[in-house]
Design a protein around this nucleic acid. Structure first.
Lengths: 155, 155
DNA sequence: ACAGTAAAGGTCAAAATAGGTCAAAAATAG
DNA sequence: CTATTTTTGACCTATTTTGACCTTTACTGT
């Protein structure tokens, strides 16, 4: 018999296909009840089957009314972007590298001129100096999320 | 289902939009009755969704005949903008507050929907968690630079 | 004018609601 | 038999909701 993790994975993917949406919103506890399992099992599914490199991105909100969203990304056939996201998520990124990446995104028309200017201001030392010695790491985190957003199917 | 706080937020914003006014006057107890909740719930809504940094300002009067006013700040006004930037740059900013301000900029059409999505992803915990305990400060720095770039103010 | 009371709104902390983390235990694959 | 993957549970963090108690202001009768 298939494992719990794969049945939950199947369930979520089918749900996305049926509803035809690229962004599904679910409640961890409810989903856990459907499969009569502990809530943290859901986290395991998300961590092992819906990672960024696997073409999905998960956002969650805690507290009363909390839930999580699974967003589908357009990376299924772009290995370069996949590995770029993986690489970025570990480690730091200099201002120059980040700006270079943004310039490329501008050249290839993934972003507009005004988006470029805004995003550039966001990764500047002026904006991130408050992060102290974590500046490089914060910049990497920002660039990663920019890429993920650009890769959203419904962007 | 959406939370009480977000339904009250929506109600107030819709009311402002419908009446086309920048200054709404409401009674805390009446509003609480409409939503069948404790009056202090209203304070929670105001504190988390209508802060100065989010482009609103709240004034209240106690005592018999008391009430509160919610004023939409004029983001184009240079003085108000500068004091907003000053307020932001000292101290931290939560994700929710930052998102509130971005929503406001979207409403006012200072930014487009896609710019909103990009900037929103940039100030998310996912992007900034690497900054550790400096997350709030980094977010404030980012929001400050966004405003400066967007509205081309000298600061 | 004055004291007392009723009618607002404010504060703050506890409770309720939801999701996250991490490591141990169990199951499975090689 | 060992290594990897899956499952479970104890404990943690974040956000919302509620309620007890406090402060301010207007009105009332004397």
């Amino acid at each position: 018999m298939s494992t719990l993790v794969s049945r939950i994975e199947r369930y979520i993917k089918d749900l996305m296909a049926e509803t035809g949406t690229d962004c599904l919103e679910l409640k961890r506890n409810e989903l856990a009840q459907v499969f009569t399992c502990v809530p943290s099992q859901i986290n395991y599914v998300l961590e092992t089957r819906f990672r960024d490199e696997q073409g999905y991105h998960v956002i969650s909100r805690r507290g009363a009314g909390g839930c999580f969203q699974i967003i589908r990304l357009e990376v299924t056939n772009d290995d370069e972007l996949k590995s770029l996201i993986t690489k970025i998520s570990q480690g730091e990124m200099s201002r120059q590298t980040a700006e270079g990446l943004l310039s490329r995104l501008l050249e290839e028309e993934f972003i507009s001129k005004s988006e470029f200017m805004l995003l550039n201001s966001v990764i500047s030392p002026g904006a991130l100096s408050a992060a102290g010695d974590k500046e490089g790491a914060a910049r990497a985190g920002i660039m990663k999320n920019i890429l993920i957003t650009l890769l959203r199917v419904d962007f």
